[in-house]
Amino acid sequence: MARGEGFVIIGLGTFGTTVATELARAGEHVLGIDRHERHVARVADELSEAIIADARDEDALREAGVGAYATVIVGIGEDLEASLLATMNARLLGVKRVWVKAKTRTHHRILLKIGADRVILPEQEIGRHAAQVLRNPQVRDYVSLGNGFHVVEYVASEDMDGWTLDRLKLDDYQDLRALGLMRGTEFVPCTSPETELKAEDKLLLLGRREDFRRFGDVL
């Protein structure tokens, strides 16, 4: 692995293990770190490296070579002190990108203050995601892009079979745009208002939450 590449996952609980193993399956070089032997043993065969170390100890992380990696993800949620110290130590070792899992809003604010690039509140993010999908059965998935913008995947119903994009009246919404649609494994660009939808097409729309709310009510 070249310097400035790869991922370090600190804390191999459910969240950290999931991130680590998914990155490893995608072919990334992943170093997993946890102070509990049983957590390390559980993923040792799946990651590039897995070691027992206390992330509160800057010297232990330096010895593990953490400073040579591009990204550190701190997955320690329950132990506030360990989470904060692991984050600060990653910064002290020169890691350019540090993402951290938080347990509470207070934890979130402190992590931002000490230099975390992104703070993840898994339960709240999953809860918001579930609420959006449950509210409109045609919403299959969505991604928040920041600044109020989202990409939402709508599934065309049987009633919408044969509809054209023009019939959706997207121009009635200030910030709503069709990016394209997935028809099975085929991507169909939405370059014409005459593009026809088929039942079960997955329509990808870019827009703001308020426009999506109004659009969903019309559907």
Rank of each mutant, 00 (worst) to 15 (best):
I126G: 13
K198Y: 11
L145F: 04
A156E: 01
V100P: 00
R97S: 10
Q124K: 11
H129C: 01
W99F: 15
M182Y: 12
R105H: 15
D161N: 11
M160Y: 07
L80I: 14
N89S: 00
A178T: 03
T104I: 04
N136L: 07
A86L: 02
L134D: 01
T87G: 08
Y154T: 08
K198Q: 15
K103Q: 13
L121Q: 00
I110L: 07
D171Q: 15
R105P: 10
E153I: 08
L181G: 02
L92S: 15
L112G: 12
T185V: 08
V133E: 00
F149M: 08
G148L: 06
Y142A: 00
L80R: 12
G94W: 02
A102V: 04
V151W: 06
D175A: 11
A130F: 11
R97P: 07
L170M: 14
V143I: 12
I110Q: 02
G184L: 01
S192C: 04
R97F: 12
V143H: 01
K198F: 13
M182W: 12
V95P: 02
Q138C: 05
H108K: 11
L168V: 11
R167C: 11
A82P: 02
T106M: 14
A130G: 06
V133R: 13
K169I: 09
Y154R: 08
S83Y: 04
E125W: 10
G162E: 00
R140H: 07
I126W: 13
V119W: 07
L179S: 03
L121G: 02
E81S: 10
P189C: 10
G146M: 04
K113Y: 11
A116C: 05
L84S: 05
I126M: 15
L170P: 02
L93A: 03
S144F: 09
R97C: 08
T164P: 02
D171W: 13
R135H: 15
V188W: 03
R167A: 15
V155S: 09
S157K: 08
L112A: 11
R167F: 12
R167Q: 15
V139F: 03
V95G: 01
L121E: 06
V98G: 05
G146W: 01
R177E: 12
Y142E: 00
I114N: 10
T185Q: 14
Q138R: 15
Q138F: 04
P189D: 14
G77Q: 05
M160Q: 13
G162T: 05
H107N: 11
T195I: 08
T106S: 13
V139T: 07
V152G: 01
I126V: 15
L85T: 12
D171A: 13
D79L: 09
D175V: 05
V152N: 00
T106P: 07
E186N: 13
R135W: 08
G162C: 06
L85F: 10
K101Q: 12
E125K: 09
L145A: 05
L92M: 14
G146Y: 05
R118T: 14
A178L: 03
V188M: 04
A86T: 05
G180Y: 08
H129I: 00
D79V: 07
L84P: 01
L165R: 00
E196P: 11
P137F: 00
K103Y: 08
V133H: 02
R97T: 15
S144W: 04
L93K: 01
L93Q: 05
E81Y: 06
E186P: 07
G162A: 03
P193Y: 00
H150V: 13
L84R: 09
L168M: 09
T106Q: 14
M182H: 14
G184I: 01
G146S: 02
